[in-house]
Amino acid sequence: MLEARLEQSSVLKKVVDAIKDLVQDCNFDCNDSGIQLQAMDNSHVALVAMHLKTEGFALYRCDRNIALGINLVSLQKVLRAAQNEDVMTLKAEDSPDALSLVFENSENDRISEYDLKLMDIDQEHLGIPETEYGATVKMPSAEFQRICRDLSLLSESVAIEATKEGIKFSCTGDIGKGAVTLRQNPNVEKPELGTTIELQEPVALTFSLKYLVNFCKASGLSNTVTISLSNEVPLLIEYEMEHGYVRFYLAPKIGD
């Protein structure tokens, strides 16, 4: 059986908020490393991989691997009933047909109990190879969100070029073109406001801005975002949490 307690319901609420517009039905795989999820959007262009590690739970017990088939819209309806500061306890039997969610407020004078029906989701699981990326860029998540939003008003694609000078986002559309260049600037006082680039080799790839804007819904999970690029491979965008992460992979647009 599974019994997992989060001190703050906001952890799960924010994760579901971040991915619910990209994927609808997914398996939350519970095992001794914590709760993991991997799902692709309908067009198989983007993939989200999430991991809430065991250390992030006030209490975590999972006797055997359990796959919780969940519709994220339904889960979000139940999570709306949890206040951010409520303690949340998830419980499920082995091969469960429902997930029990209990929310307790900090004054300990309100306890809410919900059961969410589970689904049988037969989803192909993709093997994501360990990759040495040509360029790894760390920047403020708000900065990346602003760039994607601004450029998505001009075009549906963005060319991303990483060189030793910096990272350049450029696009061309019907009304004109635009480009944003961020130079390496490891802000020493406030590192989370800096932009750092590790470059193994220069890279240049084109991606759909619609997906990048969607991924940026996860900006609330972390002040910084790490963007990993290599020529001819999917882009990796990672939002690190204290005890876990949400990662997005996006296939590039090929040929010009």
Binding site: S43, H44, H125
Partner: peptide
């Protein structure tokens, strides 16, 4: 014009 690749071109099912 560029064409949108799919992840199945890069990641194999396990």
């Amino acid at each position: 014009t560029s064409t949108q690749a799919r992840l199945n071109d890069f990641f194999k099912p396990v």
